[in-house]
């Protein structure tokens, strides 16, 4: 490998993490008053903002309307200042459209859409700073926003990426590790039931190693779950204290 050593002999990665360690996660719910639900999350240097509107009446063409469940409408975008080089098109390019579809698939699996026939749920996610694991950060942000909006879900959806470098599976890849071009895998998991909402892999990986990488990714997802659950509980605790008397009634 030219120059950059992604995994040192002592087993440390470029940013000083161990192989299975996550980046620091900080999150906040209810950041906007206007939206039904909103959340902000930082995973290391990757920062994302998610807002949820709905369920509400279908806007735009009526033909999208489903009579037995609600439509989940997602939009993924990256701020023009989020990457090293300034982006020309914040959304609407090929990569963003693909990401939009992935998000839609993930949340259609998790939200109990059959409870809201003929309606629409909008999930808008924006990456404010991109440092690897964009999809995963977006899923985590959107999960918090959906919970904040009070929309029923089967379970949290937690996502994490994993890679495979020098015979070791690495959890939660950063931009440098992604750019090295090794195999990478993005996994969105419903952690309580161990169901997979989305699984995507780039480049080649030997079949024998797949299981180990999957295990690393799902372990990482469960670690993410622990952090997100903590955030939600603190938020809930704070709100119930403020609301005070009514909850006792």
């Amino acid at each position: 490998m030219a120059g950059l050593e992604l995994l040192s002999d002592q087993g440390y990665r470029v940013d000083g993490r161990k192989a299975g360690e996550l980046r620091k996660i900080r999150a906040r719910m209810g950041v906007f008053a206007q939206a039904d639900g909103s959340a902000y999350i930082e995973q290391g240097n990757t920062k994302a903002l998610a807002v949820v509107y709905g369920p509400h009446e279908i806007r735009g063409s009526r033909s999208k309307m489903l009579h037995d469940r609600s439509v989940v409408n997602c939009q993924y975008s990256m701020a023009t200042f989020s990457t090293g080089e300034r982006k020309r098109r914040p959304h609407g390019d090929r990569k963003s459209s693909e990401m939009t579809l992935h998000l839609k698939q993930t949340f259609e699996a998790a939200i109990l859409t059959q409870l809201y026939p003929r309606s629409q749920i909008d999930i808008y996610v924006q990456i404010l700073q991109a440092d690897g694991g964009n999809y995963c950060t977006c899923v985590n942000a959107a999960t918090l926003a959906v919970i904040d909006a009070g929309i029923p879900m089967r379970d949290y959806v937690c996502a994490s990426s994993a890679g495979f470098i020098e015979d070791t599976p690495l959890a939660d890849l950063s931009y440098v590790e992604e750019a090295a071009g090794g195999p990478q895998l993005a996994l969105a998991l419903l952690p309580k039931s161990d169901q997979i909402a989305l699984l995507e892999m780039n480049s080649r990986l030997h079949e024998d190693h797949l299981e180990r990488v999957m295990d690393a990714a799902s372990k990482a997802c469960k670690d993410v779950y622990a952090v997100l659950d903590q955030v939600v509980r603190e938020h809930l605790q704070e709100l119930t204290t403020l609301l005070g008397d009514r909850t006792a009634a």
Binding site: I147, M153, D155, K192, T241, T247, A248
Partner: peptide, 19 residues
Amino acid sequence: KRVSEELGTGSGLHLVTPG
């Protein structure tokens, strides 16, 4: 300020999260 510090923590409510 964290309001919960001012008002005291909520009293034994059963709080749950999805799942």
